[in-house]
Write a protein that binds this DNA or RNA. Structure first.
Lengths: 240, 240
DNA sequence: CAGTGGTCTAGACCACTGG
DNA sequence: CAGTGGTCTAGACCACTGG
């Protein structure tokens, strides 16, 4: 691919798109050519190359390491969830020790709202109870496409590492998450697992994650004890 | 102020800090000198000036208008709350018409947790019921320092414009917001205002806003009917 | 030591703005 | 028309990396 010098689209924008494509297509997976090599490859000046790369650094697609080179950025889900904290982090902030226990892992038929949201007929379902200092404070249900679920089920899931597994072990490139937070009342089953009364207030979080192609990766539905759990979000004017 | 050429801190970083200070000190309130004027003023090249300005544009402190100049950015709170939607927006997304009604506006003594969070002894308290298609779906309580509250109380508050008032009319420069979302049960008073049963599930949102100096601006506590309201957050890898 | 990204200069041409 | 930010070039020196 080369640049179109007659086009009114600035060269650095064209080059940025080419590099972005090559990264998402997997052509560059780690180190990029140096700025001087890219100058020769695309017949542009170093500042134009730098403009393209700067944009991608700002979007956290690339990372620059002075003296070493320019690299594809490694980012975890929790990292770009950014202002929203993970379950483990929330529990740790309360001064308690986070824990998890897998109570179900099976293939299921999907119907109703879950089918609408995921677009799946079958899914692999994981159900985990989350603990804070050994007190049960939430139930997290994860739904994955069958193939992905099968792979995940080979790991030890009595830990807090779902997202890390997806990113690091299974190389799923996640892209976007939509999260909804609402309140509700505990079902009989919730009540039993969480040691609370049926009908007690719970806080419900639903999250849908799609990969860079917009394909479904995960749907999660979590029920937390309202007296033990809340979501904290910090929003700041400096996006830095 | 001028730049220190012997200092190891890059010139564009020094210049960025100077400009940032002048903006926050109110020296520049609207239009900045042109890039060519800044070159002459600080004895640097145009690319160095542009590097400084680019950084401030990225942090949303400045805005560039091609052909016109560089300006101090005007930003509303809802704007930088970004991924979190406002009450009105949430109601509109449900396909309903948002409304509000002021039911209390008074100076109060502050104690307990509210005193801890705000650091105030006295506060001005506003209480509004929020509607969706004339159905009451939430109670929002706002607490301000007495002086600010007095100013706000002179406006017509039977509308959705609290943040806009703060920013546009009262020139409060907000900076950071911390938000907590949890669940609870309706008190008798909640139940009466929201037309629900005492003890029914509600979702509770608390938000503390501070200005650019870290000084307290507002504390808000809102109770929403769990069957009618939820928080939606979209998180994306591209921060753009 | 060669190679890397970071910084900085001087200069040029462009499209757009608004009197 | 002069003035603005946007784009682009060519070239230079720097500190840091790692063989």
């Amino acid at each position: 691919m080369s640049l179109d010098y007659t086009n009114s689209i600035p060269l650095h924008v064209q080059l940025k798109k080419i590099l972005e494509q090559q990264i998402y297509n997997g052509y560059y997976t780690e180190k990029l050519p140096s700025e001087r090599e890219l100058m020769d490859e695309y017949y542009v000046s170093r500042s134009t190359v730098r403009q393209s790369i700067e944009q991608l650094v700002r979007e956290r697609v690339l990372e620059r390491k002075p003296g070493k080179g320019t690299f594809v950025a490694i980012r975890t889900i929790n990292d770009w969830l950014g202002s929203l904290h993970s379950t483990s982090e929330n529990i740790e902030k309360m001064g308690m020790a986070p824990g998890a226990k897998l109570v179900a892992s099976q293939e299921i038929e999907v119907f109703g709202r879950l089918k609408d949201v995921t677009g799946l007929d079958k899914a692999h379902h994981f159900k985990r109870v989350r603990y804070a200092d050994d007190i049960p404070m939430g139930i997290e249900r994860h739904y994955y496409p069958v193939g992905l679920g099968k792979k995940l089920s080979q790991y030890n899931l009595d830990q807090e590492a779902f997202y890390e597994l997806l990113e690091k072990e299974l190389k799923v490139k996640t892209f976007q998450a939509e999260q909804e937070i609402k309140a509700g009342a505990a079902t009989r089953n919730d009540a039993k697992l969480l040691h609370i009364l049926e009908g007690a207030s719970i806080i419900i979080a639903e999250r849908k994650i799609t990969d860079i192609h917009g394909d479904f990766v995960e749907f999660e539905r979590a029920h937390y004890r309202a007296d033990m759990y809340s979501f904290k979000i910090t929003l700041s004017r400096n996006s830095k």
